[in-house]
Amino acid sequence: MGLEQKLGDMGFVTVRLEEAVNWARTNAMWPMLFGLACCAIEMMAAQASNYDLSRFGMELMRASPRQSDLMIVAGRVTRKMAPVLRRLYDQMPEPKWVISMGDCASTGGVFNNYAVVQGVDEVVPVDVYVAGCPPRPEALIHGIITLHEKVKGEKLVKWA
């Protein structure tokens, strides 16, 4: 926002409301602690020492959907799990975003059969798809940064 240049002796700064809100939203986006399958292990690896997701303001994984802004669907969604997933999504407060992590969550992956939902976008709206089986932690981080860019571009009229 170029805060340093604008900040004079007067102690206040002017900024567009959109930008301020979107900045706040991107820098404290709390994901839900919600792993389904293999990708959840890579999500844990992204949280852990080598990749350190907290550099992006996402270190607080909340186990309760009521406290989280972002749902990372990490792994294959089965027909038995889909209603649960939808309920968790409905329990999350607005604004909320969804990252579909991995091939299984995005398209069904190698499991084109009776048990697996062919893409979680049949159940919840998805903002960012991350490819890979499973995606590397870097790929997940890239997906998150892509989501940040998307959120930074959100308009006031869309909030309603």
Partner: peptide, 9 residues
């Protein structure tokens, strides 16, 4: 909840 149908597939 993670029954993937691997055996059938």
């Amino acid at each position: 909840f993670l029954h993937t149908g691997v055996e059938k597939n």
